[in-house]
Design a protein around this nucleic acid. Sequence first.
DNA 1: GATTACTGTAATCATATAACTTACAGTTAA
DNA 2: TTAACTGTAAGTTATATGATTACAGTAATC
Lengths: 139, 139
Amino acid sequence: MNSEYTIAVHSLLYLAYLPDHMASSEEIARNVCTNPARIRKVMSCLRKHGMVNTREGVGGGYILNGLPAEISLGRIYHSVSYGTLKPNWCSGDPLETCPVSSHTQEVMDEILSEAEKHYEEYLTTISLQNVLEKINRCL
Amino acid sequence: MNSEYTIAVHSLLYLAYLPDHMASSEEIARNVCTNPARIRKVMSCLRKHGMVNTREGVGGGYILNGLPAEISLGRIYHSVSYGTLKPNWCSGDPLETCPVSSHTQEVMDEILSEAEKHYEEYLTTISLQNVLEKINRCL
DNA sequence: GATTACTGTAATCATATAACTTACAGTTAA
DNA sequence: TTAACTGTAAGTTATATGATTACAGTAATC
């Protein structure tokens, strides 16, 4: 899977953790251990899906849009990484006469999509708040 | 995800589809559209997990071990690709004082493992036989 | 209105991963 | 003894991923 999901969750957790729920891409990048451009790309996606608001210019940055208890890991997954679970290599050849060779890909695609839904559904049961609580239990 | 899973399922489907349930790595590779060495690697793994029997030497190859209705996609997944769902990139730094930076990785690992179990559980409800039936419905 | 500190986005480069190829030892049927 | 297989690993190439750099756009502040 794409690691952008990890980055998205981590960034949102960081915002949720901050008293004012606001930080710049550089500050988030330091916490996540990656570069600011990557953070901005992921946050831009999260903004489009309503999970953060952004402010450009001096004193700008990212701020959580909503309560940590109301943002689920499933929602984040769907916004950032939906469809990245399946392998991007294709087996078989659609032009072959053997039905296994020509149709396995198509059938497996459907099955793996359904499996991904179950994956996502589980993540929907966990909120950012829940994750913060788990983190606190580590201390 | 690792595409070896696709290859494993496809290969087993092919064996299940054949009247005598037996084929060489070269024959399977042609059907899957990859090279024989790769097939042998995956099949070797499936043998260790009891889903195929192999015969070396002249006239050898791979033969399905068990009925198509009794081999589930979940079992194949667990044998070949368990743990490959999560990203192999790590966010944060365990040595940081900020709990979000130092513990997100650990907490997310646990959550994603659980999510993977749900993914696998769904696949357990589908047998090779079921997949062959779906393929037939494509025709 | 100029400056500074931000985001948004894309292009390029480096590196890690995945897949292919080749090779060869071991095995077994004929 | 030979031919047709598997088992496995090493070397090579292709692709995907992540880092870096760059720069235009925006807004607060002086």
